[in-house]
Nucleic acid binder design. Sequence first.
RNA 1: GGGCGGCUAGCUCAGCCGGUUAGAGCGCCCGGUUUACAUCCGGUAGGUCGCAGGUUCGAAUCCUGUGCCGCCCACCA
Length: 908
Amino acid sequence: MEKAFDFAQSEERAQDTWRNGGGFADGKTSAEDAASSYSIVMPPPNVTGVLHMGHLLNNTLQDILIRMAMQRGAAALWQCGTDHAGISMQSKVEKELLAKGLDPKKMPRETFLGHAERWRDSHGNIILAQLMRLGVCCDFKGKVHTLDVDYARTVLHGFVKLYRRGHIYRGRRMVHWCPQSKTALSDEEVLTREIDGFLWRVRYALADGSGRHIDVCTTRPETIGGDVAIAVNPNDPRHGDLVGCRCWRPFPREQIPIVADGSVDMTFGTGALKITPSHSAVDFEIGQRHGLPLREVMLEDGTMNALAGDELVGLDRAEARLKSVEVLRGMGCLISEEPHRSAVGIGERSGVPVEPRLSEQWFLRYPSVELAMRAVEGGHIRFFPDHWKKTYSHWLNNIHDWCISRQLLWGHRIPVWYRRGEDRTNVENLHVSVDGPGDEENWERDSDVLDTWFSSAFWPLGTLGWPDQKRMAEKGFSKFFPTDVLVTGPDIIFFWVARMVTMSLAFLGENVPEERIGEIVPFRDVCLSGIVRDERGRKMSKSLGNSPDPIGLIDRYGADSVRFGLIAASPLGQDILFDEKSLELGRNFCSKLWNACRFRSMQGPANALRNFDAIAAAAAGGADFFDRCILDDLAKGLGESRKLLKSDGDGSASRYDFQGSLHALVRFFRDDFCDFYVELCKWRLKKWPIRKNQTLAVSDLILRTMLQSLSPFVPFITQELWQQLQFGQPGEVLQRVPLPDLAFAIENLKASPAELERCCAFRSLLQQLRSTATGRTAAVLLLEKLPDSERLTDELSDPLIAMVGCKSLQPIDRIPLTLQTVVSPWGRLALAVGEAADGGKMREELAAVRRHIAANRAKLDDEEFLRRAPAHVVDGAQKLLAENLETEEQLASRLDAAGQFSTDSAIG
RNA sequence: GGGCGGCUAGCUCAGCCGGUUAGAGCGCCCGGUUUACAUCCGGUAGGUCGCAGGUUCGAAUCCUGUGCCGCCCACCA
């Protein structure tokens, strides 16, 4: 074997092996009928996107789960694909066209879509190719794009169904409008940000010629042209007499009424509110209540129209605000200007303030909301960490109808046709279907497309062929739905997770009784990973430049190290602070794994022993208690690892503790196997050749099992080593090799409780002796053989010496009292270090032990404790007390003797 | 204005349906290359578990209050 692990070469080789050997989770198994199935849908990345750290973490987690399922022999499907990403894709293409000197606004719909499709086809799969570098074994061949013909049919079908059930309707309502993208947005796509601005107090003169006036406070003077009234609270004594009067709008100068409305907050500003129904959702409602007209002063691109006043027309809304202040000041209507912080809606994609705008849109009244809540409350869908279900429920409890139409070109065009030249508001003139009206020439299709998130709400359904029975059968809908787990970020619980639940329940939930909700949810578990932040806790962003290039990291450290590092650094259910240093942990571990296997390969080939059971049999012959104990450790390590990362989909509580699960494997491998067992075996191999095969068989048993268990986490290096050590047939795909039944295989190798205790004692003995020996190479190990102790065999004395780190082992009749002794199976052991024992340190220890003794005695003297505490706790306290008393006695006598004996003379 | 999460060793975090003397990794410091690995091995030091009350024989863990830090939701113009 090579001296070091060459990840670049191994990655390529492993990919070949997986490609040729069915290494991807395409739902197929070698067995005719898999005993179980397991499925995950990958959150489809944006087709415009490039891989970022979040993808890396998220997909590593999914890959671990799916590989584990494959190892269990389950029919495992990991559906991947890409999302067409409506707004961001459209603006990207528009920008490219403008750069080429083409004006996207002036081209026909089809021309623009042609450009977009070409761009998508040439760049769209970059992100999946990048994911492949990470080693993910999703079903690349079965990838789905949300604009694929079949998937699009799913989406349109869903629309039509919901429309027919009365859940989708068209209406002229206030929506969030993005003047940059020139489309409506959903509530979720608008972020609220506190923005520092001003509050202007503006004077409106009464029209009765009395010289009286009413002042309003506003943050948006540019919309004054849209004012159609002033509203005051009917209970406000300051303005009560003005209700019913008319006043002058400053510009364009026109009389508007003063009305009374209970929703006006008397404590804010002057208690008078200017009513601009076309540009404020609240004002719109007030306007409706009072039968006020609408007066729109802004165009869809955010520039002011003629109604805004001669001074403002043509200006952008931001310029118009400044200008309007200037105009008001010139007119003497501006009473004051003070700094004011207010919450402003910002378009999630565009980053510009959105405008409330009245427009004709399609809305979805969410279906199955109640059921979606019950699905989670009843435990049919479980969140990890659990507390996210509160966020989910809170959102479902407070949702408004969803504006699903977008004034874009790129997306699923709404499957609605209007009879040409007829009144669109008349339902008679509407056609809603997936395939359109037969006589299309008489109809005109709705020009809007659907919100991208509307289409992704169908992801688990559509990728499995719903609602087409034939495609569902092909795709294995009955086998793979519901999916087992959804791994994603908590930031899209609203956007995606909750919406998928409502859709699945709505379409599959007809006539399903409550107890079977679990069969119609889109996924059983939702595992929310943290957000990857930089080492200082800041969100990674392009502008900060703190986001490393994932592919660059893979190039430099290797995919396994990146995966390992990310897992090792991500705490359970919290954001992860990414530091490149954590990748070094991964690299170091890979190196350790490589070297341990290299050491094994140096002892001779394992080629005769490809069969696990044969190895187990060879390991059993003549095994000593160290062999039995290391296998016991192995079983414990594996058990711990699996407990923390259960993914059987058997309904038992999983923890999705990836970090803990990996750590349990690493701990066993490094501490128990490499640093203890292998070190021990070095001498056994050297001094006792007759047991070589047996010893190597134990090693092989462990290495095989570890390679398999680690392979979901670090698939490349394990695949490479599996091949190099010839544990499997050439070309064998490691994730397809069934996990051995370890418990059964090592039945003959089970360590007895006594042996385990002895092994454990031996190791703690080593540790005690080492701490004394550290830094003292001249130390000599003393053995005081007791009458009933075992014989210390040659093959154990050498490793003992080596592992303690001393010079030699010397039998002695009586160990001096000054030395700390440990009891071993071969008698009492002590370390003579050639210098006087450290009395100061011993006195410290003695004081500590005495403190413990006092605390323990107090506890055991307390009758309440004895009466109320459970037996095992009392027993424990008693046992501890006894141990401490013994230690105290030993320490005391050593201290006592310290003055009388010198270690040098004892060795002589 | 509501809601959620965090506060444990220098750093990042476990432990939290109460029970022996609070753990890990990294870092620090000390010591080590005898045929896997210095990308390594061994060892030491380091914490009144944010704060204050309460419940209990017993609290990092449960309850109440409170302080910081972060996030999400919300139409005060």
